[in-house]
Simulated scan of single mutants.
Amino acid sequence: MTLRAATVRVLLVEDDQRVARINRDLLERDPDVHVVGSAATCAQGDALAQALNPDLILLDVHLPDGSGLGLLRHWRSVGRTTDVALITAADDEVSVRLALAHGAFDYLIKPFTGARLAELLARHRGRRLPTTPGQQEARLDQGRLDRLLGVHGRSAEPLPRGVDPHTLERVAHALAGAGGGVSAEDIGDRLGLSRVTAWRYLEHLVRTGRASLEHQYGHSGRPAKLYTPTPERPDPPE
């Protein structure tokens, strides 16, 4: 079974073309990440953000025609709520505090590692709320809000040994986008994980109520284990 890709559409705003190419290459090592545009100035970044409506914007601070922090402030003032992360050499506390105050959800200081960039992507995925086609904007219960804030799983019981929170959210996200019951092998193929690893994470989702398990019997006599995400509980009527 082929799972529907949950693509992360990224806009880069970086004036150093060499750095922009390196960042694009690092990002697109993940088959579910697509860099939809690259801008070298604030003006270009603003125009592309409006035209492309990306899921994630990676923004530099020092740009030829202004500050990325000013661009971020402008986006928030006009109601653009796209996830924005700073990737910059600006390592002063004022820049970091301003970025966070204006709604940046992450901040990477150059040079950074590929693993840290992958963690940024995992955090972005963990903040995305699953939706179905035609679904109207929903009210948030605490569980959905915690996911948006990136604090899912920090309360209640700690994760068991060997369960990485970022991999867990990747598995949960892939399961939510599968469009039906899928096996551990399906999820493993989709995310580049072994079947056993995918099974371990899926079983954890079942134990914590985020997924359900169904046994499907075929001609071989051995039942297939199919996993589906647990639907979000509807909001209580007012």
Rank of each mutant, 00 (worst) to 15 (best):
Q135R: 06
P111Y: 08
H204S: 10
L213K: 03
L117W: 00
T81P: 03
R222S: 11
L48S: 06
V10R: 08
S155G: 14
A118H: 05
L59I: 04
M1K: 03
R73A: 15
T113Y: 03
V10K: 09
G79E: 07
G188C: 06
V84W: 05
L56F: 07
A156D: 10
P236E: 11
T167S: 10
A89S: 13
H74Q: 13
T208Y: 10
A138W: 06
P158T: 05
L63Q: 02
H219G: 06
E14M: 09
H204G: 13
A49W: 00
V96A: 09
L120C: 02
P160A: 11
R125N: 12
D15V: 02
R147S: 12
G209A: 06
G153I: 08
G180D: 11
A104D: 06
W199N: 10
A184M: 04
L69H: 05
L202I: 02
A174E: 09
E119Q: 12
G153S: 07
H74W: 11
L148R: 11
A99P: 09
R161G: 10
A101R: 10
L69K: 04
G150L: 10
R125F: 13
G45Y: 00
V35Y: 01
R233P: 04
R222C: 11
V36P: 00
H166P: 05
D83P: 03
L159T: 05
A176W: 13
A178K: 05
A198P: 00
R147D: 05
G126M: 11
G192Q: 12
G181F: 00
A51R: 10
H102W: 14
A89C: 06
R24V: 03
P130I: 08
L56N: 02
V10L: 14
G66H: 00
I109C: 07
S183Q: 06
A40M: 11
M1Y: 02
D106A: 12
P237H: 08
H204F: 15
L11P: 00
E28Y: 11
L11G: 00
P130R: 04
L63V: 06
D46T: 13
S77R: 08
V8R: 01
L72A: 08
D30W: 02
